[in-house]
Amino acid sequence: MIEVDRRLCDVCGTCVAVCSSDAITIRGNKLVIDHELCVNCLACVSVCPVGALGEGK
């Protein structure tokens, strides 16, 4: 499951642009991942400029 580390996330929206399943939203200046829509393609992980996204433990 993809998780966001909010301490690192700068809410730049780069991940939103590459998410083909529309699973990432910015709400109230926070990144929200809809795990029901996420297909675990890791596109967001590869483009995150601060390394805030990754597979949760």
Partner: peptide, 15 residues
């Protein structure tokens, strides 16, 4: 870059 409005109209703007 975070655009979702176009997607709401059915346009594919995924990068």
């Amino acid at each position: 870059v975070e655009s979702r409005v176009a997607r709401w109209a059915g346009l594919n703007t995924t990068t």
